[in-house]
Design a protein around this nucleic acid. Sequence first.
DNA 1: TATTTATTGAGATTGAATCTCAATTTCAAC
DNA 2: GTTGAAATTGAGATTCAATCTCAATAAATA
Lengths: 146, 146
Amino acid sequence: MRPEERIFRNCLASRGLRYTPERNIILQEAFNRHDHFEAEDLLYSIRKKEKRTSRATVYRTLELLVQCGLLQVVDFGGNSHHYEHVLGHQHHDHLICERCGRIIEFTHRQLEKLKEKVCQEMDFDGRSHTLKIFGICDQCRGNTKR
Amino acid sequence: MRPEERIFRNCLASRGLRYTPERNIILQEAFNRHDHFEAEDLLYSIRKKEKRTSRATVYRTLELLVQCGLLQVVDFGGNSHHYEHVLGHQHHDHLICERCGRIIEFTHRQLEKLKEKVCQEMDFDGRSHTLKIFGICDQCRGNTKR
DNA sequence: TATTTATTGAGATTGAATCTCAATTTCAAC
DNA sequence: GTTGAAATTGAGATTCAATCTCAATAAATA
């Protein structure tokens, strides 16, 4: 059994909830993705495969996956939520290209340290953070056009 | 004339747009605020003062104020955009209390440096950034309750 | 004055997300 | 395997911020 499935099953069980076929399909589909995705995308993919699932169930299950620590909500400034995997991915932050919309992940050791420092100075119990840097990516800078 | 008004007038003029009474009211109201606000809040405040303005105009004018560099959109994870002043406020980042929703601003010199470094390493032309640290604020930690 | 262009506002529309509730499924207890 | 309690689902309604439409109006220019 894939690790995400075991975790999801356990998390559900611990709350008296069931591992249903629908939740299975949505879990599979969410973990087939290798980058950020939106709820509507996921719904669309599932329906294209003739697997019937309702919009409500997709949204509900994504919420459960977040609560179980398998997914995370990331906001990139659009009008919809994006999700990304937590399991098997160390914490990272994002570079966002304002021209092509590409999202590039990065990590930097010093950032964690800096965060600690800020929290100490501000007397804040920091638990998580997001850093987004907006700008122009290398590919777009290469293109003089547009 | 207040600096924000001069800037707005200039910015509009340079694009062949007009400084209308409605735009004036919205500018005033936006700059009376001293913290983050939402478009609907602003509309409500204006209407409470018997100044008639349409929803469409508020949204359109806020967009203009962003384009003119007077306001900035900030997302705190809710379902609506928040705006904050740019003019007269140096760049800052945010601590967000997950318990009481309080938003605390902070700045840290090292963060700017770190950003430069990351961009250099990633070959990215960074233009702006946002760092949000989520956690529990000092006040809420003081309250053992809840 | 006539013409062009920008602006406004009421209301319709969009679109993501959530909610409702009857029908269905699952599970545990008997 | 029957029964009852609880969880789950899905179709469609609803919410809500945000945007769009378009006719009426206002301002600038010729």
